[in-house]
Nucleic acid binder design. Structure first.
Length: 306
RNA sequence: GGCGCCCUAGCUCAGUUGGUAGAGCAACGGACUGAAAAUCCGUGUGUCCCCAGUUCAAUUCUGGGGGGCGCCA
């Protein structure tokens, strides 16, 4: 299957480029952003605007309530199914997003295992509260020495996952990842990456947060009141800082806004770390002239040759 | 003008009973296999405000100067 992936850190113009590519090649957009999948969070996740969405068909946006569980595995399955359908209709899927794990699960596949178990995780929460996070590592070492050996004692997210897998299946996560059944990988996409130099990127992020505020980000946050618990739990960037200001009265407004900027900058840096090691990505800097022309040439060739 | 407190890493601040210093945040680098905008790991030479004095040795003590804050005038 042919498809194009537009990736890169936040605030680089992926959305706009995706739409241009979709129009040029008769494609449709497939979201690969873990937060734009959710409803109610629009301005703060820099979701495509209604005008943009009207230009070409957009998929996998606004499909989940904020209280719904989701995972990289589910993403990979949904996206694969959708893209297979599009392809059958001769529509080119343009995957756009900055969530590295989702793109990896989609393109390289991901091992199969039972659904995450919220109740078991709650039990782990209690253990952490009583005995501290290090306790999880000790517990894992007892049943899965191999995985415990490669995980850091404070890496709670992975410790939860490893313990949960062992609890559910009796095998270790390392075994499943190595020998288990896999959701297979998908096609041979053309990877396009967009980024700016660091200074430029950070300046753009700062400016975009100001624009978000102007567009009514605070009103959007206010409307999130019924979902505060879920938004906090997902630690959605920007939202948590505004919530701390608007609902908890923990920090003044200007401080909240600069935190929002800072956290978006931190995130962009993590995304770069993720994408930099992917040597299939063809990188482009939008400040270089003719950058779109180069992208089109590359894309034309890709679609011709396959 | 008087009195008191403060001046240490980009920021907020610890600390050194005199032997030239360390946390958090930031920054930078990295990891990442069903929560990933998550989660985690690594990296710290900075005229310790300036000048002089005491001392083998001062960021630390003393004196002077500069800047900030508070109270009293």
């Amino acid at each position: 299957m042919n498809f194009i992936i537009v990736c890169g850190p936040t605030c680089t113009g992926k959305t706009g480029l995706g739409i241009k590519l979709a129009r040029r090649y008769g494609g449709e957009i497939v979201n690969a952003d873990s937060r734009q999948i959710y409803k109610h969070t629009t301005i703060g996740t820099a979701k495509p605007t209604p005008e943009e969405m009207a230009k070409v068909k957009h998929h996998l946006f606004d499909i989940l309530e904020l209280n719904e569980m989701f995972s990289a595995y589910q993403y990979a399955r949904m996206a694969r199914e959708l893209m297979t359908e599009l392809s059958a209709k001769d529509i080119l899927p343009i995957v756009v997003g900055g969530t590295g794990l989702y793109l990896k699960a989609l393109t390289e596949g991901i091992f199969k295992s039972p659904q995450p178990d919220p109740e078991y995780r709650k039990r782990l929460d209690d253990i952490v509260e009583k005995f501290g996070i290090e306790k999880l590592h000790d517990m894992l070492a007892l049943v899965d020495e191999e995985t415990a050996g490669r995980l850091k004692p404070r890496d709670t997210a992975r410790l939860y996952r490893a313990l949960e897998i062992h609890h559910q299946t009796g095998s270790t996560i390392t075994e499943l990842q190595r020998d288990g059944e896999y959701l297979p990988s998908l096609g041979n996409p053309l990877w396009l990456g967009i980024t700016f130099n660091r200074k430029e990127l950070y300046e753009r992020i700062n400016k975009r947060v100001d624009t978000m505020i102007d567009m009514g980000f605070e009103a959007e946050v206010k409307k999130l009141e019924p979902y505060l618990g879920f938004v906090r739990k997902r630690k959605m960037i920007g939202y948590t800082d505004m919530i701390a200001c608007m609902f908890d009265n923990d920090i003044p407004r200007d401080e909240a806004i600069s935190k929002v900027k800072q956290h978006h900058r931190n995130y962009a840096k993590r995304q770069l770390t993720w994408f930099r090691k992917n040597d299939r990505i063809n990188w482009f800097d939008p400040t270089i002239k003719d950058f779109e022309k180069e992208i089109y040439e590359l894309s034309d060739n890709y679609l011709k040759s396959t």
